[in-house]
Write a protein that binds this DNA or RNA. Structure first.
Length: 571
DNA sequence: TCCTCTTGCGCC
DNA sequence: AAAGGGCGCAAGAGGA
């Protein structure tokens, strides 16, 4: 068992303090003050891997990264763990900063968490240069003392989980969430290889040359705008304004309910196709055009800012730069460095496999024991119609009831009663105001913390209440699957990161490293000669994640893995 | 002018 | 009759 070490950086300067701990969090010696925290951490880690205990990975690890010779193996992120524990203890959403946890422990008034940087509330005139200390410790409190005390208390709360299997899984969640924080910090530091020249060429092909006047519309976009206006009678209007677009179409005798592209696709008028094209190009320009490149992809790297645990289901969110929404067309710009390659791996049909493993439905597990789950499902229950099989299963996981899906759900209910019973029980729990949890124990928000939507039409309370209850049921129905899939993905990430760290390399600069993570997909940037070993490590990590999260299950979680020079060439 | 809400669409 | 989960981002609409 790896030893633990509490760590608190000095608020100013490169120093800090360390204190060795046992697994219960009890100090094994006095605090040690060091003038160079990075050097002291590196020396200790080189002697023996430690689990580093700190207030938050953002504030403790990110500043160390540029000064560490190699990555740290393990950590315990008090802020993330506090959030997991609070939700598990039925106190979802209580403040989770180190200061809040410390204050709860000491019976002091608990400070609210500061708003996330970048959020609307955070921009209250405060220059980020003078970003306040986010730990929220009361005046005079000693950071290292608080880290040690809060950690010991968290270890106590973890040990207090009564059911041994649930306790074991929750500890796994704690470790995986913390490992995720390490990965997120490292990806932000290393960046995703991004070829600005390729990106620029792509934009030029689609939109015309970069406008010399900032903010000006690129030529092809402007041309398209004029063409669109001419197709609708020649009167000028702003195609970015749905109000004006609806009016322009109405003047030509076409009543649209909205300007959504799926609705436009059914419109025969030539202006509809022009508008669809305009919207596609306009979106690329606005969301991932030259301004985006200037802001987020400088120096040959796109540096996404992930927010670990940013989604209640345990999925990561992102802050600025749209790290989780890179359009497929832009993948052309993601190119490995010379002599390096990208190993791109995504989990195939992750969520239905998670459902099969969670519910232990023997029939569904058999369809998830091999390659194409939907194909097997279709052969078993839908006369080979793969589209129907996929539609039905997705509908069951999302709580869809519209369209012609009823008969599909009936078939599924008949053939896979345990799986369908599992999601329907989760839905009922939600409708009744209860909470559900992921496989590893991440607990969903209580009903009161969401769906406080009072904008419902003022019809009878019963109808509005029923609608809200059903919405909540769809949320909990999906939560058990989405959050358990996130459990698996985090476990994969942690296992893969460890395996990459164990590969023999010439040195840290030659080490393969994660550069992208998107729910069920990872990209590793690796020296070309290690690409096959990395691909093998990803497959092993996926299987390790299966064992850790789901134990003994016949369900397999196959990966689609590609070793490529360019992200666009992966499938 | 600033701010919040809505719309629409990118990703899973 | 209507009835699909989770996000982030940018622009327009519209009110303060």
């Amino acid at each position: 068992m790896a030893p633990r070490t509490a760590l608190a950086p000095d608020p100013h300067g490169p120093g800090g303090r360390l204190q060795p701990l046992d697994d219960a969090g009890t100090p094994l010696g006095p605090p040690e003050k060091v003038p160079d925290l990075a050097a002291a951490v590196a020396a200790r880690e080189a002697a023996e891997h430690s689990r580093w205990v700190w207030a938050a990975t953002d504030s403790a690890y990110a500043p160390l990264l540029p000064r560490l010779p190699d990555r740290l193996a393990r950590c315990h992120d008090l802020r993330l763990v506090e959030a997991l524990l609070l939700a598990h203890e039925g106190r979802f959403g209580a403040p989770r900063s180190l200061g809040a946890a410390w204050s709860r422990l000491r019976g002091l008034p608990v400070p609210d968490d500061l708003p996330e940087p970048g959020s609307a509330e955070a921009d209250d005139g405060q220059d980020t240069l003078f970003a306040p200390d986010r730990l929220q410790l009361p005046p005079g409190a000693d950071p290292l003392t608080a880290v040690v005390a809060v950690h010991a208390e968290q270890q106590r709360r973890l040990a207090a989980i009564a059911d041994p299997a649930a306790r074991h899984r929750f500890r796994l969640l704690v470790a995986a969430e913390s490992a995720g924080a390490l990965v997120a910090a490292e990806i932000a530091y290393d960046g995703l290889p991004w070829r600005a020249d390729v990106h620029d060429q792509l934009l030029t092909e689609l939109l015309g040359p970069r406008p010399t006047v900032p903010g000006a519309q690129p030529r092809l976009l402007a041309d398209l705008s004029v063409e669109l206006q001419q197709a609708l009678g020649g009167r000028p209007f702003n195609p970015d304004s749905h109000t004006q677009v609806l009016r322009a179409f109405a003047e030509n005798g076409i009543q649209l309910g909205s300007t959504r592209s799926w609705e436009l696709k059914g419109v025969a008028h030539p202006a509809a196709a022009l508008l669809i094209r305009y919207k596609e190009l306009s979106r690329i320009h606005a969301a991932h055009g030259w301004a985006w490149q200037d802001a987020w992809a400088r120096g040959g790297r796109f540096r996404p800012e992930y927010v670990v645990g940013g989604v209640v289901s345990g999925r990561w969110a992102s802050r600025g730069g749209g790290a989780l929404q890179i359009p497929r067309i832009l993948r052309r710009a993601v190119v490995a460095d010379p002599g390096w390659l990208l190993v791109v791996a995504d989990a195939a049909q992750l969520e239905p496999r998670v459902l099969a493993a969670l519910s232990q439905d023997a029939g569904l597990a058999r369809t998830a024991a091999g390659g194409d789950l939907y194909e097997a499902l279709a052969a078993n229950a839908f006369q080979g119609d793969r589209d129907k099989a996929k539609l039905g299963l997705l509908g069951a996981m999302y709580g869809q009831t519209s369209g012609d899906i009823g008969p599909l759900l009936n078939t599924l209910r008949h053939r896979y009663p345990a799986a369908m019973g599992y999601v329907e029980a989760a839905a009922r729990t939600g409708e009744d105001g209860g909470v559900v949890a992921s496989r590893l124990g991440r607990v969903c928000p209580p009903a009161s913390a969401e769906f406080l939507d009072l904008t419902e039409a003022p019809d009878t309370a019963g109808e509005a209440g029923g609608r809200q209850a059903r919405a909540r049921g769809r949320f909990t129905r999906n939560f058990v699957i989405q959050a358990s899939a996130a459990d698996w993905a985090l476990a994969l990430l942690a296992a893969l990161r460890r395996r990459l760290g164990e590969l023999p390399t010439a040195g840290p600069a030659e080490r393969p490293h994660l550069v992208f993570f998107q729910h069920d997909e990872v990209i590793v940037h690796t020296p070309a000669n290690l690409a096959d070993e990395v691909a093998a490590a990803v497959a092993e990590a996926a299987d390790e994640a299966r064992r850790l999260v789901f134990g003994d299950t016949p369900v397999r979680f196959p990966l689609t893995t590609a070793v490529v020079d360019c992200y666009a060439d992966a499938k």
